[in-house]
Design a protein around this nucleic acid. Structure first.
Length: 887
RNA sequence: GGGCGUUUAGCUCAGCUGGGAGAGCGCUACCCUUACAAGGUAGAUGUCGGGGGUUCGAUCCCCUCAACGCCCACCA
């Protein structure tokens, strides 16, 4: 019979992507709507940088979040997924500065602050939404009306409100402090933005003379000889027998001949270096502390661009690298350099600029995080917020249990300007949420705002609050702050646990006393197939948009979801995307098979008494999958959810149920046809429903055919476990039936039979239920293994001799082919099977004859082992008899 | 220096509270069988990093060694 099929042989992913995304938007599917759970579920998207281009990390973010939010939406939660973009102070400013310089050879200083900011905004309007369009290609189902930019009015209000709050509590303070100074950005950066890298350098040993006794020469080890101009002391350990008598005397710094005190400080390690330390409070973190303890002066020898200033006249204007050479030369001339040897040591680099950061003392704004960090730790300890996988809380704790004050000022222009004002007349300083025009103390109009902007993470940290309108009451009501705060789950990568997660926790709890989210799911970092980080310099990046174009968004998404469980790396090989594209196509073709019979199918399942054994089986299997998938999705095991449904579609639905349906659908029993068509359709509905959160496009496309586009799958109810569909007996029978069928195919293959060759099969089993099952399925064996005729009897019956045969633990299979087959080959095959089975039998036998095992193992386990032994024995008996038949 | 993690089939990884080693991809043979060659059927492949211990029993728990990775740390 020829069945007409007007569906294309391969799934048109691009067509479906364009069509359905628009339909979802038109249908308002991504807006919150009340469901049967009567609870909300909120996810906040980590805002990508406006300068960004969608990379695999974003794609993974998008996939896991979208799968989760679609799942919860279908489960009947009132879902909200909030999108947005980040102004990314440093990188955006850098991008635009570069562009302007390239086009006009002008720096930002040439343009002035106001004009420069205007240009950045123009750039943002033009290019800032690119990444949003790219996200849409992945099918993200966020509520775009909630979309927020970190420099929008709402976040700006939030930042000011929070800043002023802390300022007035005394938790924000300004201080001369040693900070990491990035000479490229010409700004302070926070500790977290410093990356330590191993750098090859030298260990220099320098001579310092002692003024009181010119015969003594102190040898001091340093990796940075150029900083001697900033030395304000020499320190030794007060317990160091070699040097303790020198404490209180005076040392003379080479080149500049400055006289500095020799002091004793516990910090100095007797073992390390030469035991003598030059103290440079202006350009070293430890020395800064030593300086504070001992009241030493701070000498700054650096300009903002990292070059040396007039405090180091011999090297003024030089950058550190050249300065070091020059100083080395001078020291050599003076005979003060006694040794120089290779030395590898970690050096801090700016995360963004990749330039060596210089510790420098400057006036910066800080947040005292002690109390906030404590609260953030407690929330996780108390279980008010939970990490998935749990192990990541260690990283979180490590950061927050040892909090350092957070340097929040940046000497940039693009960002939230610090809301602190100064009066030129009376020098008063205050913080304000508004835009003051006069000094609040002396009422003079001559005031100015602090020129620095805030660290980007200061505004990101308030993201869960500001995206819901906080602190503006009207906006909060509009955005339903009360309903959607706290968020439900935050999904992000482990690299920003302390940059972002920890700060949101601190800031969210400071404002509301509640953690800003209940769960944090930390997903893997996407790497290339060899486990290397994807980077521009290695050129090993995989562009998600290329992959979407090539294989479809669904394949891309399924691959990422299938790779996302509790692992920390996701090594992505494009071949895997291709593999899952094949799966998507498999699903499509399964639907192509079902499609012509849809008009026969009824909307409701027939009464149970009309269900065929195979119907009961597939519904029971489907039900099991529904259970597992729900459980997996609830704990962010996307990998388990994917493999479960993959397995079902391939191994259960396509390989068996569809094959077992052909006989009926191509037959003459009209009533049976209707029932089977109904079953196939019913299953397909459930399959696409289960799969929808992961592969939304193809499932929506198929749903459109199933329901004649009367509804959208995106807002249907998810499949729940139904105890009424459980049927372990039929599942067990079907497994044995599958084993039998594979056995027959195995024999066919072993005698090199062509698929077209028809066979006669004789089965022998003592399992009566199985015999009945096989008997009722007998017509299907033609389709499954080209069986023309056959019998099924109990094992005591007379069996064919010298037959191609095989035994399972429950059944003996014979295909009488005497005269055609190679008897030796058959005998060898049986013998091999026998050896294997015997080995397995021995293992369990050993247990049963071990009295310790019998005395100690639980009853359950003993029974299991006994049952196994029995099965192996049965199989061995069968195999022995078959072998004898060849005698 | 401190901490975390990884080590299971050629590759990427799963294996829950200990009880017969799994998946996907790849590989081999045969097959264009009327949903699908982006497919089907059958098949091969592992001293579960090394050593020790606890246990009737260890891929799983404990100790130890090794290799690799990541994070943190003040550049003597």
């Amino acid at each position: 019979m020829e069945i007409e099929n007007n569906l294309p042989k391969t799934f048109d992913s691009e067509g479906a992507e364009n069509k359905w995304y628009q339909k979802w938007l038109d249908g308002q599917c991504f807006k919150p709507r009340k469901g049967k759970q009567n609870k909300t579920f909120t996810v906040l998207m980590p805002p990508p940088n406006v300068t960004g281009k969608l990379h695999m990390g974003h794609a993974l973010d998008a996939t896991t979040q979208d799968a989760l939010i679609r799942y919860k939406r279908m489960k009947g939660f009132e879902t909200l997924w909030i999108p947005g973009t980040d102004h990314a102070g440093i990188s955006t400013q850098a991008v635009v500065e570069k562009l302007i310089y390239k086009q006009e050879k002008k720096t930002r200083h040439d343009l002035g602050r106001e004009e420069f900011l205007k240009r950045v905004w123009e750039w943002k309007e033009q290019y800032g939404s690119e990444i949003v369009n790219q996200q849409k290609k992945m099918g993200v189902s966020c509520d775009w009306d909630y979309s927020t930019f970190t420099l929008d009015e709402a976040p700006n209000k939030a930042v000011k409100k929070f800043f002023v709050m802390l300022y007035n509590e005394g938790l924000i303070y300004q201080s001369d402090y040693i900070v990491n100074w990035d000479p490229i950005l010409q700004s302070a950066i926070s500790d977290a933005e410093v990356e330590h890298k191993e750098v090859k350098g030298f260990f220099y040993h320098l001579k310092y003379k002692v003024k009181e006794d010119p015969t003594i020469e102190l040898i001091i080890a340093t990796t940075r000889p150029e900083t001697i101009f900033a030395d304000s002391a020499v320190a030794v350990n007060p317990n160091d027998e070699r040097f303790k008598d020198l404490i209180g005397k005076t040392a003379i710094v080479p080149i500049c001949n400055r006289e500095v005190p020799i002091i004793g400080d516990e910090h100095v390690d007797i073992e390390k270096g030469t035991g003598c330390l030059k103290v440079t409070p202006g350009h070293d973190f430890n020395d800064f502390e030593i300086g504070k303890r001992n009241g030493l002066p701070i000498i700054n020898i650096l300009n903002k661009d990292g070059s040396f200033n007039k405090n180091a006249p011999e090297i003024e204007g030089l950058k550190p690298k050249d300065a070091r050479k020059k100083v080395e030369e001078i020291l050599l001339e003076l005979g003060e350099l006694v040794e120089k040897k290779d030395h590898v040591h970690p050096v801090g680099h700016g995360e963004r600029s990749d330039e060596i950061v210089e510790p420098m003392v400057s006036k910066q704004w800080f947040v005292n995080t002690t109390a906030m960090a404590e609260a953030a730790v407690k929330a996780v300890e108390d279980g008010d917020m939970t990490f998935f996988p749990k192990g990541w809380e260690n990283t979180y704790f490590a950061w927050l249990r040892n909090p350092k004050d957070w340097c929040i000022s940046r000497q940039l222009w693009w960002g939230h300007q610090i809301p602190v004002y100064y009066c030129k007349k009376c020098d008063h300083q205050w913080a304000s949420e508004g835009d003051p025009t006069e000094c609040i103390q002396c009422k003079d109009k001559d005031i100015f705002q602090d020129p620095d902007v805030l660290d980007t993470w200061f505004s990101s940290g308030l993201w869960p609050l500001s995206t819901l309108g906080w602190p503006d009451e009207k906006a909060m009501a509009e955005k339903r702050f009360e309903d959607f705060y706290p968020n439900s789950t935050l999904i992000t990568g482990f690299d920003i646990i302390f940059f972002w997660v920890a700060r949101m926790m601190m800031m969210g709890m400071k404002v509301t006393n509640k953690p800003p989210f209940q769960h944090v799911y930390i997903h893997a970092i996407v790497r290339d197939k060899q486990g290397r980080k994807m980077s521009k310099s290695l050129g090993n990046g995989i562009d998600p948009l290329d992959m979407v174009k090539q294989y479809g968004a669904d394949a891309m998404r399924f691959t990422l979801a299938a790779g996302s469980g509790y692992n920390r790396d996701l090594n992505l090989d494009p071949e895997r995307i291709e593999g899952y594209r094949n799966f998507v196509n498999k699903l499509w073709n399964a639907f192509r098979f079902v499609h012509p019979f849809l008009d026969k199918a009824k909307d409701e399942l027939p009464v149970k008494s009309e269900w065929h054994l195979h119907d009961k089986w597939i519904l029971a299997e489907l039900n099991t999958v529904a259970k597992t998938m729900n459980e997996a999705m609830d704990v962010y095991r996307f990998d388990d959810a994917c493999s479960e449904i993959y397995q079902f579609v391939y191994e259960k639905y396509c390989s068996w149920y569809i094959e077992l349906s052909k006989n009926i659908l191509y037959g003459n029993d009209e009533k049976a046809k209707v029932i089977r068509a109904t079953m196939l359709k019913y299953c397909f509905r459930k399959i696409v429903t289960l799969l929808h959160p992961i592969v939304p496009f193809i499932t929506e496309e198929i749903w459109g055919y199933l329901e004649n586009e009367k509804s959208l799958l995106a807002v249907q109810e998810y499949v729940e476990f139904d105890p009424g569909l459980e049927n372990t007996e039929v599942q067990e029978m079907m497994n044995k039936f599958i084993e039998l069928t594979s056995g027959i195919r195995n024999i066919r293959s072993s005698v090199n039979m062509k698929p077209k060759d028809e066979i006669d099969v004789k089965l022998f089993t003592d399992d009566k239920r199985l015999a009945k099952f096989v008997y009722e399925s007998r017509h299907f064996l033609k389709d499954l293994a080209n069986v023309k005729s056959g019998t099924i009897r109990n094992k005591a019956s007379e069996k064919p001799r010298r037959s191609a045969s095989l035994a399972t633990t429950h059944t003996e299979i014979f295909i009488p082919l005497e005269g055609i087959i190679d008897l030796n080959e058959q005998v060898n095959r049986i013998k091999k099977d026998m050896e294997k089975t015997q080995a397995e039998y021995k293992k369990v036998e050993a247990k049963l004859s071990n009295t310790n095992f019998m005395n100690n193992a639980p009853e359950e386990v003993r029974q299991e082992v006994k049952e196994k032994a029995r099965l192996f024995q049965d199989k061995l008996t069968s195999l022995t008899q078959i072998l004898e038949s060849f005698q």
